[in-house]
Design a protein around this nucleic acid. Structure first.
Lengths: 202, 202
DNA sequence: GATGTGTGCAAGTACCTGCTTGCTTGCACA
DNA sequence: TGTGCAAGCAAGCAGGTACTTGCACACATC
């Protein structure tokens, strides 16, 4: 059993990397097999089709990302710390599995099956954070004159484009350590200052 | 001559739309021909190859975007207005030609020729805005404790992800009128408040 | 009226893609 | 020793892709 699941895992790993960098359509099953060190036929025996690989990958991704939902962030009394932790979590998650998700989101417009898989992920995330933000607008932690959905979009815009510029477009280097990286904190600070606007009242 | 350039233009228009929504690799020359209302052979006679179409498109795009560089924004005394105008310009430009550029940036990782075309565009833009921001940090219009490159990244993160969420991921609707849309102003306001932090001194 | 140019149409080539088939090999368990 | 399962290997199929070729038609210009 160990050996069997191992090959399946290796196939998924290879597919994940290739899908993330080349996209779903541009990745051939032959390439997946080669990278996994596995015969191409094995892929079809284990996953039935190329789409089957994507589906299995989707499940693994869902399992992986389930742990880093908005709710799972430590809701300390300090909203700023909570959001900063969320930003770091989001960026780390995007680097790990999100680069794949981002690519697939692009592929979704051309490959209908991909669209179903990615589906409501992005809008749902936006909505979830917007709710959280709205709560803290009510308590006065955040400025109330901005639509919480716009604010959520600003937040995800920061984190997703941070990764996009680095991983996909190669505009800069990835941080050595996401948890302590100074650049992320500065980037977050721009958002936070804008969203909280502490001391802005005249 | 008029009729001849017209068909070439129609081919480029069709290719632009298809590349933007489906990506370079996933767009077939047949599809381009069909959308342009032109025989497939004509494409090869005019542009030699599929890559030739992309190259011609790249030139047209460069011509189109040359007019909307950072420098071309009216540098009024008011930095906020300048940046807001730039944000609107950037979003409109991204909707018009940037969605294509964004998609091609993704394709660049799989299609090496595409990478050359997109090339240094993104980093150069970042650098250009960073310079502008640094100048106004020096004059006190913007807070100085943030790396100007980080600030530029926050700016482009906002504008590019604004379009990405809407056009590519279909998370929301595009604005009816970019120039007056309230959502863009709110989104920009989050950035601006964070970047200027007016009245933040204790 | 001849010539050149831009385009359409039909057919075909060479290659790549996802996927299949038939057969063999190695390993585990009884 | 025998049975079953996971995997490899070689070959191939059907469909799609970029791209080519040869021929016909329209419409200008000289």
């Amino acid at each position: 059993m160990s050996a069997a699941t191992d090959t399946a895992e290796r196939i998924l790993d290879a597919a994940s990397e290739l899908f993330a960098t080349h996209g779903y359509a541009a990745t051939t099953t032959r390439a997946i097999a080669e990278r996994a060190g596995v015969n191409e036929v094995t892929i079809f025996r284990r996953f039935e089709s190329k789409l089957g690989v994507l589906r299995a990958l989707g499940e693994r991704l869902a399992r992986l990302q389930a742990g880093r939902a908005v709710a799972s962030a430590p809701d300390s009394a300090n909203v700023r710390d909570t959001l900063l932790a969320l930003a770091r979590m989001e960026i780390r998650g995007t680097i790990e599995g999100g680069a794949l998700a981002m690519r697939l989101a692009f592929d979704a417009t051309s490959v209908p099956e991909v669209r179903e898989l990615i589906g409501e992920g992005v809008p749902a995330n936006l909505e979830g954070l917007a709710e959280y933000l709205a709560e803290h607008q009510a308590t006065g932690d955040l400025r109330a004159d901005i639509d919480p959905r716009v604010m959520a979009e600003a937040f995800f815009g920061l984190t997703s484009s941070y990764v996009m510029y680095r991983m996909v477009m190669g505009a800069a280097d990835l941080p050595v350590d996401v948890e302590t990286d100074e650049g992320i904190e500065q980037l977050f600070d721009v958002f936070w200052s804008g969203a909280s606007q502490r001391g802005q009242e005249p």
